[in-house]
Write a protein that binds this DNA or RNA. Structure first.
Lengths: 109, 109
DNA sequence: AATTATGTTCGTATTTTTGCGAACATAAAT
DNA sequence: ATTTATGTTCGCAAAAATACGAACATAATT
């Protein structure tokens, strides 16, 4: 009943944090929408989604907390864009995460 | 107040489903552990994690429901392995998802 | 000063997730 | 027929996620 690892690795936790942030279709849609342009306003994002603005705001907060996007106020609007640095980090982490099946012939039969 | 899209795309929902399944450090650890070998037993996975076996079983169920792993009974053990087909699908979906920032010079400044 | 446009925050309700121990199921071994 | 080893399922509790409308905040405009 002894567990070798009391904790998860920082790497696992970071990937999980990104994955969790991306674990909702609204947030996937937001990231896809943001990634294909320089930046846009809250209203543009809201128009892309079938949910109330309060809920959109919440999803944006989660993406921001995960470090995947940034927002800055441009009265009376709020401009959002991808957080490039962390987007690239996430991309790399997922690449590495998924790469094991290519490198090891023992993997996946 | 009119929303163009009443629904999310099937693609967004599929990526979100995979991402959600990967949105916990225990499940990331499980996938990393499984991916680097052909297969293993429940107990081996349990030994890698700092949580009770009932909880491990739950996480495995979520990964199985998302289609990322498979399990088969080998009394009195249960052998688990990556669901290669869906693992490859997930890999591709995430690759495409993250690729936008490379292809568009307008993206991420 | 009041109004308008744009988002955020608050309060609330519902659902889902996470976690555990106890009980159960299965098949092999005694 | 019991016992043993291995996992799953059940029942529960606590926490987090999802969603909405209403209220609020901000700054530009009238």
């Amino acid at each position: 009943m002894t567990h070798q690892n009391r904790d998860y690795t920082a790497n696992s936790e970071q990937i999980a944090r990104f994955a969790k942030a991306l674990g909702h279709p609204a947030r996937i849609t937001i990231m896809e929408f943001l990634a294909k342009q320089d930046s846009c306003f809250f209203g543009d994002i809201h128009d892309e989604l079938p949910i109330a603005k309060a809920t959109v705001s919440q999803h944006l907060k989660e993406l921001k907390d995960a470090g995947l996007i940034q927002g800055e106020i441009e009265p009376p609007k709020v401009r959002y864009c991808v957080n490039k640095e962390n987007w690239i980090l996430a991309k790399k982490l997922f690449e590495t995460f998924f790469s094991c099946c290519n490198n090891k012939k023992s993997c996946c039969k």
